[in-house]
Nucleic acid binder design. Structure first.
Length: 289
DNA sequence: AAAGCGTGGTT
DNA sequence: TAACCAAGCTT
């Protein structure tokens, strides 16, 4: 299977900034690290412009570390999950203080950085430094569960995913990096969650799920909670006003004065402060200095 | 270990 | 239109 997927990838990979040879100098350890933070749960097409702007402003971890977390949260804009901006800033501090300003290539050192888990650590080690590790994201998990297990949707991430991918990995470093990227790409563009394009799939002939008639095998994934009216929506609205504020501090009574549920607004402010995404003092609220 | 965490595009 | 979906991580 790896051979067919890699051959398909060579012909069909999307033209993305970090894949362009002329941008290779921008996508070393730091460029890949920033891109992977942004890509955690945010679609590629929304990430690209923000990624280029971020790297233009902060071309190194040390340059980001020299600015305030508030600057990172503002620059993050509407990418969503703003604590990623906070965590990325924290990781930059850790890289400056523990690694001399150089993004580490060792998976365990990467895992020890704030905001980096099993996926991101291996993605940096493999795509930035060419090491040989299994890189498993939701796309790869979906391809594997369909092709091998014959089911329609993957289970939540687990240690087994890494083992399954490891057993498929080609022997060479460069080949294994290509295969990791190819599996993600196949899941992202062909073996999609909702309407897979099996006619365009390079491994349709050996796919257990397709050969079984694409049964709906049930979905063990968690359902996403309703957003409209949620605390998350309230947090998002509070943070949006803090980001937009021209003066850096906002009187607390001026934050969402007309929010339908004042208790929910207060809860949102408190939780943002608890998360370090906002600071309250003297009746004012602001992004973290 | 299950739940919480943004935002916007697609179906 | 409401639900689904998107290169996950932390507690």
């Amino acid at each position: 299977m790896p051979g067919a997927v890699m051959a398909w990838y060579r012909e069909n990979a999307r033209d993305l900034p970090w894949r362009r040879p002329e941008f290779a100098d921008r996508y070393g350890g730091w460029g890949v690290l920033v891109s992977e933070f942004m890509l955690q749960q945010t679609p590629v097409t929304r990430v690209i412009p923000h990624l280029e702007a971020w790297l233009a402003r902060w071309p190194t971890p040390t340059s980001l570390a020299a600015d305030a977390p508030a600057d990172a949260v503002r620059q993050w804009a509407n990418l969503g999950y703003p604590r990623r901006a906070l965590w990325l800033h924290r990781a930059a501090l850790e890289i400056r203080d523990r690694h001399g300003g150089v993004v580490p290539r060792d998976v365990d050192a990467l895992l020890a950085l704030t905001g980096i888990g099993d996926y991101t650590a291996r993605a940096v080690a493999v795509f930035a430094y060419g090491e040989r590790h299994p890189v498993v994201d939701t796309n790869t998990r979906r391809v594997i569960v369909r092709a091998i297990d014959g089911r329609s949707q993957p289970d939540p991430p687990s240690r087994r995913d890494l083992d399954a991918m490891e057993s498929l990995l080609p022997a060479g470093d460069a080949e294994s990096a290509l295969f990791n990227a190819a599996m993600m790409e196949l899941g992202a563009t062909v073996c999609t969650a909702r309407s897979p394009l099996c006619d365009a799939c390079p491994i349709a002939h050996i796919c257990a799920w397709r050969l079984a008639g694409r049964p709906d095998t049930g979905d063990t994934r968690r359902k996403q909670a309703r957003y409209e009216g949620s605390d998350r929506q309230a947090r998002g609205a509070v943070l949006k006003t803090l980001r937009a504020a021209t003066s850096r501090s906002v009187p607390i009574e001026a934050v969402l004065p007309d929010w339908p549920d004042p208790l929910q607004r207060d809860r949102a402010i408190d939780s943002l402060v608890a998360d370090g995404l906002a600071e309250a003092s003297g009746g004012f609220l602001r992004l973290p200095a």
